[in-house]
Design a protein around this nucleic acid. Sequence first.
RNA 1: GCCCGGGUGGUGGAAUUGGUAGACACAGCGGACUUAAAAUCCGCCGCUUUCGUGAAUAGCGGGCGUACGGGUUCGAUUCCCGUCCCGGGCACCA
Length: 911
Amino acid sequence: MESTYNHKAVEAAAQSLWSSTNAYTVVENDPRFPKGQYYACSMLPYPSGKLHMGHVRNYTINDMMYRQLRMRGYNVLQPMGWDAFGLPAENAAMKNNVPPAKWTYENIAYMKKQMQSMGLAIDWSREMAACNPDYYKWNQWLFLKMLEKGIAYRKTQIVNWDPVDQTVLANEQVIDGRGWRTGAVVEKREIPGYYFKITDYAQELLDPVSNPDSPDFLKGWPDRVRAMQENWIGKSEGVRFAFPHEIKDANGKLIQDGKMYVFTTRADTIMGVTFVAVAPEHPLAVWAAESDPELAPKIEALKAGGTTEAELAIKEKLGEPTKLFVTHPLTDVKVQVWVGNYVLISYGDGAVMGVPAHDERDFAFAQKYGIEVRPVYQLKLPIGDMMPGQHPERDAYVEQVDAKGSWKAWYAAKTDDPLEAVALERICPNPYNDLSPQKCVDAVAADLAAKGLGAKRVTWRLRDWGISRQRYWGTPIPIVHCDEHGAQPVPYDQLPVVLPEDCIPDGSGNPLHKHEGFHKGATCPVCGKGARRETDTMDTFVDSSWYFMRYTSPGNANAMVDERNDYWMPMDQYIGGIEHAILHLLYARFWTKVMRDVGLVKFNEPFTKLLCQGMVLNHVYSRKNEKGGIEYFWPTDVENSFGADGRVIGATLKSDGSTVDYGGVTTMSKSKNNGVDPQDLIERYGADTSRLYMMFTAPPEATLEWNDSAVEGSWKFLRRVWAYAAKHEAALRAGIAGPRDESKFSDAAKNLRREIHTTLKQINFDFERIQYNTVVSGCMKVLNAMEATDAAAITPPALAECFSILLRVLYPVCPHITQGLWRELGYEACCGELLNVAWAEVDEKALVSDTVELVLQVNGKTRGTVVVPSGADKATIEAAAAASPEVAKYGEGRAPKKIIVVPGRLVNVVV
RNA sequence: GCCCGGGUGGUGGAAUUGGUAGACACAGCGGACUUAAAAUCCGCCGCUUUCGUGAAUAGCGGGCGUACGGGUUCGAUUCCCGUCCCGGGCACCA
């Protein structure tokens, strides 16, 4: 064999072997795999042009899992596909004047080649692309089913409209209120669109992420992802009730029929209401502005600022009083209406009851405007003693068990005159004083219901999923518009509605409008007359909501999925970026439940286990240039300077020493000039080194700050593996072929086997918990142990066994070099192809040793070790420990008071 | 502001249910080989120079050490309470 490692030749040979044997094509119920199916899948990539480091990391994790489990006897499926619809293709089309389809297909071809060069064990016979009519036909099919079931419906939506380009803009395409391309002021327009009633499934989507007792609880998901979904769904249980009023508009009509509704989760504090606040867009605020010219601009000003950023949480609570009053539903006291900048029109009824004593925001607001604070629960601190930012409720909850009598205390404090206090209380008594908060909520809700003014209500943050996009490159929504019969679904037998692939968007409007054959070439299914085809396409999240099930049923032209899907699904392990923790994973769960309700699948949840691999980050360096633009610098062209705490405080350019700004670490991107192309790495060191380094440098879920200075180390390790094989080729060959009689193994062989099987045990554990960085370090330990032992002293069959363990445990990370050595050394001729060889199992007999070394502690401090025969009983160990010189020295001659023995590990002598 | 993670050598990171902290590497330092370089191999590598013993900033011994302050325990990186800092998520959600 070659004396040195030639990665190019080795990798080419392995890859051509795999492709010539279709090594990774899997079939259902394959009898070769006694342990049954295992479906391990990565989130499908967008074909942007080429792979980035995040992809390499994601797919290497997936591939390691694949190879290890397959060797363990599982029928493993690792498919791949393309999230091929979407906006970037349209933008590229405009820039390069090529149809999005062509651009997309070329990218797919290139990226597929890159994946093959990584040595990924993908079953390409199941490849899918979202832009293929064979795939998106089923988006359309299920859409029609959802229309039938009422899960899909049509309503008008407010969108960002660019008046120059005549197109709809996504939120992120609106910059400072202007279109990103045209700079035109963006208008809000109401246009009709289709929605999915995901809210109907809210409770069913919530339980598996929030309730550990739910039968579908997703215990194989990271806690943080479950928490994010739970927050996103946002269930809150409370009471919705009305403040009656007689406020009339200019036409003399009662506004909102004389009832101002609010929602609260704290109905128990209803007796503490001292004001109400409405959003600036609320009908009462609108009327207040119309009827008071001085107030109008002030209310307008309250609309300023976004409402979706975290910074709002610390924004100052601002408001304006109006001349309007509503009536407290239980006490009939008049309550002033304020307009507040912290009230959101989009949540609940756009109005809140103000209880300064028991709500932090209400408290801040009341403090600012001198509104009365009226506690319902006894407070720990008098209101006057509270510091700014300190909120009464925190303390109030502590004391809430003693709510009884609190109002009396408060009234008494408000006036020195006990008679007046009694009088005040009579005006506004609190009948709920004796109740616990939860009982109080029930009682208040009952009283409001009796008056016909309110009821308990569950409110959700989750909104229905709007799927209409006024874009070209997406799944056509299968609807036609007839002048006579309106919007009509396309009949099932006319699916798919095929998207023309020859359009080149120019940025103005939807090119499908101009495509006569598409737009005008439809007929009404009711009357058969000519009709216009819907030109809106579906949100690309629709495509990604079920692609993983299409992998299971490739080539089926008659059904979305078939019985093969029942074999593979639910997916055992899903792997992808944390950035999809909410939307994609929620939509896929919803879509699965819809498929279940249509009778296509029998399970409730699609992903049993979820792994979110950490992001790959790199440093960012930039500087403002003369033109005012920002210039980014390649990280390796920059020298850092460090502060006393070791953090980067500044940076200079290596070329001329000029200073640049250090921007911390962020995700790699072309625009920030900090993306590392994995192809460079693969070409220079090979796929195995790249994979090894990627896995070794950080655990899969941790973020990884890119630094390739250690790649050389991984490269060096693989060269050592090869060199060891080349140096000991003869002994290894002899060991593979020779008879194996363990009773004749030399002591050196026994010692080496003990060490390697101990390490193997750890490696197996690390594979199970998906801690692949320590799997790699385990592989290094195996080689270190072999190199540290004189090979001549090792019985050849033992040497061959040890090296075969190394090749097998290293195989999932570095399949090429291990496959190459397996064949070169003759393992293949004897035991078959490495991919199909059984995983290395720990030989418990090899772990046994005559003596065992225990850690010796005196008074809890480690002082040395004590060697005892393995299997020694407690008394023997205690005696050995007590007799040790360390105990004599550190125990200062005192007799042991107590001896703690942890079998196999440690003995602690307390004197 | 709230929720979820996290804080360990110069660096990436290890330590399975509390049991020898720093595995495995990278960088660095010293050495071997070589005409030289590369490659390779061997050794050292948390702090304490003023804690002891040494001529010694060598060895040996001791002490300290897992963000900080407490606690539980024979024993704490690990468990509990409090504080600070960093990262991610979010919804001023009534």
